[in-house]
Amino acid sequence: MAGSSLLMLIDDIATILDDVAVMTKVAAKKTAGVLGDDLALNAQQVAGVQAERELPVVWAVAVGSLRNKAILVPLALAISAFAPVLITPLLMIGGAFLCFEGVEKLAHKYLHAAEESAEHNDRLAALTNPAVDMVAYEQDKIKGAITTDFILSAEIIAITLGTVASQPFMSQLVVLTGISVIMTVGVYGLVAGIVKLDDIGLYLTRKPGAGSQQLGRALVNAAPPLMRFLAVAGTIAMFLVGGGILTHGLPFAHHAIEAAAHSVAGVAGIGGLLAAIVPAVLDGLFGIVAGALVLAVVMLIGKLRGNAAAH
């Protein structure tokens, strides 16, 4: 009896772990939109920091990110336990914010060109002015990056909570904690690699041997396109994930997209492919429209506040 009970316990544990692994994969896939944005934003946050201080700054931000998630995970578990009715609204808010962030990023160079130019000039002035306290400058960069991370981490936790909301408490705890650690290690490990890519390339260009020098030049040249690719991929993923969250939360949109996918599924030869692609495309388009509407509302509120302050 004891042996069979032990085997049943082991089987139960294996089943739970298998369920947790599946849910973690699903949650990781759903948070992919935030991941690309997180990578690009955090790599940009390190810009302007002296080369020898880049990795310490990334480490400091990574520690801050873990602190953020140590606050957000218990908060998410408390909401799930005591106010589960808030999960869907929070998920919808997170999806709308993702879409807004994507549209705002597309419109950024038109809406904030002057501020971006001023920030770039301030960064150059700080680096070339010996009177500037670089320790204080570095601390400001770290605080800004941790604040940005808190917003992105909140999105990740909200999306993950929506995935595991119907699961037992222990499964929620394991998945939320697992996603938090995986995302933090993955994001900041990649950020560290990205910000040092050009340094590695420069090191290799100074090594003897044509092969090493050629590889070094390739790495140096690859760094800027990689940053641009991450920014573009992150933006597209934000629309796909954010739009998908919104359409799943709005029955009329969800049913319309299901009907569209069903209607193209019968196309000879490529029906299966179209049935997989069309929902993603429609989710993305819905996300762009939703993000544009939120941006318009935010800009209108900002304009009204500005007019009120002027009077």
Rank of each mutant, 00 (worst) to 15 (best):
L55K: 10
L127I: 13
G64V: 05
G271Q: 07
T24D: 05
G94V: 08
I13Q: 03
L9A: 15
L300R: 10
L226P: 06
V22Y: 09
I151L: 15
G306W: 02
S4C: 00
C99D: 11
D140N: 13
A308V: 11
Q139N: 14
D19H: 11
A233M: 08
F82M: 04
V181C: 07
P130W: 14
M183K: 05
P56N: 05
V63Q: 08
H248V: 08
V57G: 00
T160S: 15
L202Q: 14
G209V: 03
L72W: 03
V278Y: 00
Y203D: 13
I182W: 08
W59P: 00
P251S: 03
P130S: 13
L161Q: 14
S65P: 02
A223E: 15
A118N: 12
D37F: 05
V181W: 08
L35S: 03
L197K: 11
A43V: 09
V22I: 13
A261F: 04
G209H: 06
G234I: 07
N121I: 04
D122C: 03
I146E: 04
A233C: 01
V297R: 07
K303H: 10
P130Y: 12
I257C: 04
R123P: 08
R217M: 11
I182F: 13
A233I: 05
H262K: 12
N121K: 09
D18P: 00
A231W: 09
A32D: 04
K29W: 09
D149W: 11
L282H: 03
L152I: 15
V20F: 00
R305T: 10
G211R: 14
V278C: 00
G48M: 01
I257L: 09
A62L: 13
L250S: 04
N68M: 01
E104S: 15
S180D: 02
G189L: 04
G102C: 12
L250I: 15
A126W: 12
G3L: 11
L39E: 02
G33A: 02
P224Y: 11
G95Q: 06
P224A: 11
G95M: 04
E101M: 15
L91C: 07
V297P: 08
A223Y: 10
N121R: 10
P225M: 06
V22S: 09
V241P: 03
G249D: 01
D18L: 11
A192Q: 08
S4T: 12
F150R: 11
A131Y: 01
I79R: 01
V187D: 06
V132S: 04
V267S: 01
A113Q: 14
P168N: 07
A145I: 05
G242N: 13
S80N: 11
G271A: 08
L219N: 05
L304I: 10
A96N: 00
V175D: 08
L273D: 09
M227L: 15
Q139G: 06
T160V: 12
E116L: 10
E119Q: 14
A27M: 02
A43K: 00
K30F: 00
V278W: 01
R53Y: 02
A222R: 10
A118V: 09
